[in-house]
Design a protein around this nucleic acid. Structure first.
Length: 296
DNA sequence: AACGAATTCAACCGCACAGTT
DNA sequence: TAACTGTGCGGTTGAATTCGT
């Protein structure tokens, strides 16, 4: 049976995907009048949307400083660490990732991180999983950041981790920094990388909640390209037109498609000063997958 | 090439909280 | 103090896209 037609159908609110026209209305209205008073805004901008819908569209999609594209290793690391401290406080976590929205982080967690937890057959909110994150994924991310920083003397076109950029990597509105913070490089220097293997030994105090968190506000205030330790990774730089782009398409935790047996079999909870175990082939396999997402 | 399965992510929903009347 | 309104948050949904066979 068909639903009765609403006599005030003309005033009926729209739902679902936003059209280009609606986006333009919202953008222009906010450009002229600013954000806030969303119900009022929705009405006077001529949008047949709820104020909530307008707010969400603006904050999660239209706002100029929204960063698009895959999360960088640093961002992933930060999410993992912050989530271990705060849990599902997405908006709070998002505050420390400039240009990223709570929705995006939440989606990342649910689609990528929880998937890995499922593959390991452990609860994503369990202590086990937290240990796995801290002892296994974080060191890998850190190590790769470090490795990339070393190999980045290659030009972007030479660097396999820096594929050609697509237009949607361009982030026009991220303000360029003037001076880097002093101690972020040191922070990552504290991660002692073993010389000739894929082992990463991470001091437990570094991965304790406070240590990384304490660095976070500085990271949040400035884009990652500011940090000497990250500068040569090859995923961020100035585009020819002066805008700031983020090329992170090859970094994705999704690549950590761990075989539960080999992964957990080499993961020793009892040695957990984050001493990574030593089957190089395991890490080779994992990290190869991790850093080569483009072709996937 | 076609189709079903799996994945991603924009958008919606309900609730909570703060401010105002 | 209660009622109302605006805003923000976290959980969930479902259409679109990608992947695998």
């Amino acid at each position: 049976m068909a639903a009765p037609r609403n006599p005030n159908e003309e005033n009926e609110l729209r739902k679902g995907p936003w059209t280009l026209e609606e986006d333009n209305l919202l953008i222009h209205y906010i450009a002229n009048h600013g954000e806030g008073h969303w119900n009022y805004l929705a009405k006077f901008a001529g949008l047949k949307r709820t104020g909530k819908s307008c707010r969400l569209r603006w904050l999660n999609y239209l706002k100029p400083d929204i960063k698009r594209g895959n999360l960088t290793p640093q961002e992933q690391l930060l999410i993992l660490e912050l989530h271990s401290k705060w849990g599902n406080r997405w908006s709070k976590i998002a505050q420390h990732l400039p240009g990223r929205t709570d929705n995006e982080i939440k989606n990342y967690w649910r689609t990528r991180v929880q998937k890995q937890a499922r593959q390991l057959n452990i609860e994503s909110n369990s202590v086990q999983f937290l240990d796995a994150v801290r002892g296994f994924w974080m060191p890998i991310l850190l190590q790769k950041m470090k490795q990339s920083s070393r190999s980045s003397t290659l030009s972007p076109s030479q660097n396999s981790a820096s594929p050609s950029l697509s237009p949607n990597h361009t982030v026009p509105s991220v303000p360029l920094p003037t001076s880097p913070p002093g101690n972020v490089t040191n922070m990552f220097d504290n991660y002692h990388m073993s010389g000739n293997s894929n082992l990463a030994t991470v001091p437990s105090n570094i991965l304790s909640s406070e240590s990384l968190i304490s660095q976070v506000p500085q990271m949040a205030e400035q884009s990652t390209s500011l940090y000497p330790a990250f500068d040569h990774i090859g995923y961020s730089s100035l585009s020819p037109d002066g805008s700031y782009y983020v090329d992170n398409s090859s970094y994705d935790m999704e690549g950590l498609s761990l075989d539960p047996v080999s992964a957990m079999g080499n993961y020793d909870n009892s040695q957990f000063d984050c001493q990574m175990v030593g089957n190089d082939w395991v890490l080779d396999t994992i990290t190869d997958n991790l850093w080569n997402m483009d072709g996937m």
